[in-house]
Simulated scan of single mutants.
Amino acid sequence: MKKGVSFLVTVALMALASSLASAFDPSPLQDTCVAIDDPKAAVFVNGKFCKNPNLTVAEDFFFQGLNIPGNTENPLGFNVTTVNVDQIPGLNTLGISLVRIDYAPYGENPPHTHPRGTEIITVLGNTLFFNKGDVYVFPIGLIHFQFNVGHTNAVAIAALSSQNPGVITIANAVFGSNPPINPDFLAKAFQLDKKVVEFLQAHF
């Protein structure tokens, strides 16, 4: 009888412990795995082609130019300078990337989502609904945007919890899909005139 009670207590404690545990990303199985396109110059580690560690150089972990403002002369008035695994091969498997976002006066980063990463953004200059020095977090998959409400240029830096978080711009995905979504469906879904939907589809 005592053994049965002891077993039940153990199971109950394990269940309680598991309910209190927090999940986290698994640790890499190697120190670095510098991404490389040429399998002949690589070793196969944990399902990925990685540069031979003996050939790894400092430049594999370096990016230059994030201090240079991006060109915001476009209809939306914003520019994203991306620093992910494509720019820094050494980011492969490290689960992090970075972007600089520049905004013209009243420029906007339109509604979008990152399917593979949470974003934490801080305003370095001027105002994007939040002020210089403010920090905001957009959980993975959440639709979000930024808008420069000021009369002068603004800039922000964002870190993302993926080496390649991806981006899906909502308007492009809905009105610029290929093949296109039936305009009758979109008109009903967004409560718009069909001609407006067709105009948007032609634009995107």
Rank of each mutant, 00 (worst) to 15 (best):
I168T: 11
I121L: 15
N131P: 15
H112I: 12
L94C: 02
V123D: 05
D60V: 11
D193L: 10
G95A: 05
D38G: 08
R100W: 02
K195W: 04
I36P: 04
I101V: 15
T169W: 01
V135K: 09
G70A: 06
N67F: 03
N182L: 10
F62N: 12
Q201G: 00
L66Y: 04
L186Y: 08
A23P: 07
T118Q: 13
K40I: 07
N54Q: 05
T93C: 05
F138Q: 11
S162F: 00
L8I: 09
F147N: 10
D184K: 14
A189I: 01
A159T: 13
A41G: 04
Y136V: 15
P69Q: 11
I168P: 12
S18G: 08
H203T: 14
V5N: 05
T113Q: 14
A42Q: 06
N126Q: 13
D60K: 09
A21Y: 13
N71F: 00
G141V: 05
D25C: 08
G133M: 02
F62R: 13
R100G: 13
L128F: 01
Q87Y: 03
L192I: 01
M14L: 15
V99S: 01
N153K: 11
Q191K: 15
G70M: 04
L55M: 10
S27E: 08
V80I: 12
V196W: 00
A187W: 10
Q64C: 09
S22M: 13
Y106I: 01
I96Q: 10
V57H: 08
K188V: 06
Q201H: 03
K195C: 03
V149T: 14
L16K: 06
D37K: 11
F24D: 13
T81D: 08
V196I: 14
N92Y: 07
G70F: 00
L8Q: 07
V34K: 05
T152Q: 08
K3I: 04
I181F: 03
I120A: 11
V155W: 00
K188H: 12
P139Y: 01
N46H: 07
V149Y: 02
F44E: 00
V80D: 02
V197W: 04
R100S: 12
D134G: 14
F190W: 03
L142E: 09
V123S: 07
G47H: 07
D184P: 06
V57C: 10
P105E: 13
V45K: 00
L91T: 09
V174T: 07
Y106A: 05
A58K: 06
N109A: 14
V45N: 00
F49N: 13
A156N: 00
Y103W: 04
G141W: 03
L128I: 15
H151D: 09
E119Q: 15
P115L: 06
I96R: 12
K188A: 11
L160H: 12
L200P: 00
G65P: 12
F78S: 10
L192M: 05
N126R: 10
V83D: 00
Q191A: 12
Q87I: 11
L29T: 13
